[in-house]
Structure formats: structure tokens, C-alpha cells
């Protein structure tokens, strides 16, 4: 029996370890090694921090990096603010069929590709788009209005595209809060605001954190939305990575960029978990 258990453990461990080592761990280590190589001649490399120095010395790179981080954080906060009332409504204000229907309606848009959703916003926002025509029609604008290719459009796209990943964890955690507990809060003299602050939000914290982490990750690593809605000048960090790899074929610098993005995302996720006293297992698992 003991050997049987050991064999079973070994059999189940193998795929996990293969997956994590070959597809996650070793590639990232390898990417780090590549990022430390400096090209000194054709086919000749030496180990140095040159790529990272380039990153810190070139204002455009650093600026793009910081801008991406700040805008991702903003997008996360906006998504949270928009999604929370909706999630609360679905979780606590409606019951039964209506509840399932509303929840389903939240999910539907995200079963189609992000590309399609972004395409939809392009049709709405561009110069010849629906909104522009609408504004002219009601007389608020004299000529075509270009609403695409600015930071607002990027923000809108990011918020829209990440909405699901905020709504689902929020609805799940809010639903697990018994009505009784909210009623007890009122019964003991609490007002709407104090119940929200002291009972509902603390209860929803794991959902808020996991939603924020996922939305932040998706925004930070997004390539499609900034490129399509932000246009050529969108300055998103993933675009720099892409161009180093695919356009300029400078994999060493590209790897360094990739590693910086990884460090940034890990740092912010870790900070978020520490700040709220949550753990990755609890929020994601």
C-alpha cells in the first residue's frame, strides 16, 4: 500500500513538474540569462547588465514603462469602481432567475475574442464611427470627431475588456455573504455606508484582491487594446517588447524588457497581497 501510494504520487507529480519546469521555470531563467548578454560582435556575446542599463538610460523606455504601470493601475481602479455596484446588485439585490440571467449577460461578451470587442469599440469611436455620426446628427459637433487613438480610448478598452475578471470574483464573494449578516449590521444600528465599510467590503476583500490582480495583469500585459485603440503613439510597454523581438530582432534587449515587466507585475501583485493581508492561494485558488 505504501509503495502503491508512492507510485501514485510519482505518476501525478510527473506531468506537473514537467509542465512547471519546462514551460515556466526554465524558460524564464533562460530569458533572464539571455537578457544579461551583450552583443559585442557578430555572434559574440558577453555577460553584462548592458541591456538593463539601456532600459534605464533611454527616457522613452523608462517613460513607457512607468506610463504603462500607472495606466494599468488606473484601469484596475476604474474597473473595480464600475464593477462593484453591478456585482453587488447581481449578488444581493436580485434572486433566482433574474440573478442567473444578469450574471450570464455579464459573461456573454467575454466569450468572444478580445479582438472582436476591441473591433466593436473601433467602429463606435472612430472618425467615421457611430458616436461621431451621432454627435453630428444631434448637432453637438460640426464635423467628424475622432475619439480613437488617445489615452481615453485605451482606458475605455482596458476597462471594458477586463470587466468580467472583476465581476466574477466579486459576485462570488458577495454572494457568500449571508443576507442575515447584512441585516444584523442594520439591526445593530449601522447605516448603509457603515455596513458597506465594515461588513460588505471586508467580506468581499478576497474577491476584490483577486479581481484587481487579474485585471491589473491583463492590462499590463495587454497588447491588442493599446495598439488598436491607442494607435501608433500609444506607448505601451508590451509594444516595445514586441518590436524588439519581431521588428528589430534584438532578443537580448527584448528579454530584458520582458523581465522588467515580470518584475513590475510581481512587485505590484505582491504588494497588493501584502497590503490587504491576503495570500495568492486564497485569492486565486
Amino acid at each position: 500500500m505504501r509503495t502503491e501510494a508512492k507510485v501514485g504520487l510519482g505518476l501525478l507529480l510527473t506531468p506537473l513538474l514537467l509542465w512547471l519546469s519546462l514551460l515556466i521555470f526554465i524558460p524564464h531563467v533562460d530569458m533572464f540569462i539571455v537578457s544579461l548578454q551583450e552583443r559585442i560582435g557578430v555572434g559574440k556575446y558577453q555577460t553584462s547588465l548592458a541591456n538593463y542599463l539601456t532600459f534605464f538610460q533611454e527616457p522613452l523606455y523608462l517613460w513607457t514603462f512607468l506610463r504603462t504601470a500607472v495606466m494599468s493601475i488606473l484601469a484596475t481602479l476604474m474597473t473595480l469602481l464600475i464593477a462593484f455596484p453591478v456585482s453587488y446588485y447581481i449578488a444581493k439585490m436580485v434572486k433566482g432567475r433574474l440573478q442567473s440571467a444578469l450574471f450570464l449577460m455579464c459573461l456573454v461578451p467575454f466569450w468572444v475574442s478580445e479582438l472582436v470587442r476591441t473591433f466593436g469599440w473601433m467602429i463606435l469611436l472612430r472618425e467615421t464611427g457611430i458616436f461621431s455620426n451621432l454627435l453630428q446628427f444631434v448637432g453637438l459637433a460640426d464635423g467628424p470627431v475622432e475619439m480613437l487613438y488617445n489615452d481615453g480610448a485605451i482606458m475605455l478598452g482596458l476597462v471594458y475588456t477586463s470587466m468580467l475578471f472583476m465581476v466574477v470574483p466579486l459576485v462570488t464573494t458577495l454572494e457568500s455573504l449571508p443576507d442575515e449578516v447584512i441585516e444584523a449590521g442594520y439591526d445593530l444600528g449601522g447605516s448603509g455606508l457603515s455596513v458597506l465599510r465594515e461588513i460588505i467590503i471586508p467580506h468581499a476583500m478576497p474577491g476584490i484582491v483577486s479581481g484587481c490582480i487579474v485585471v491589473f495583469m491583463l492590462s499590463l500585459g495587454n497588447y491588442l487594446t493599446p495598439t488598436m485603440l491607442g494607435g501608433k503613439e500609444s506607448l505601451w510597454f508590451t509594444e516595445l517588447i514586441y518590436s524588439q523581438f519581431i521588428v528589430r530582432f534584438n532578443w537580448e534587449l527584448g528579454s530584458a524588457f520582458g523581465f522588467m515587466l515580470l518584475i513590475l507585475s510581481s512587485a505590484i501583485v505582491w504588494g497588493m497581497l501584502k497590503l490587504t493581508g491576503q495570500s495568492l492561494e486564497k485569492t486565486m485558488g
Partner: peptide
Amino acid sequence: GILYVLMLLPLVIPGIVLGISILVF
């Protein structure tokens, strides 16, 4: 416990970084 956290990590690695690391490797 550690393995479980490692198992969760791919969720918090930006997709593009996953892509380039596998590409490079």
C-alpha cells in the same frame, strides 16, 4: 504548498512574457 503557489503563478505572468520566454528557450 510551494508547488501549489508555483502552479498558480502562470496566472500572474503577463501572457506576452510567457510567450517570449518560451520563444527564447
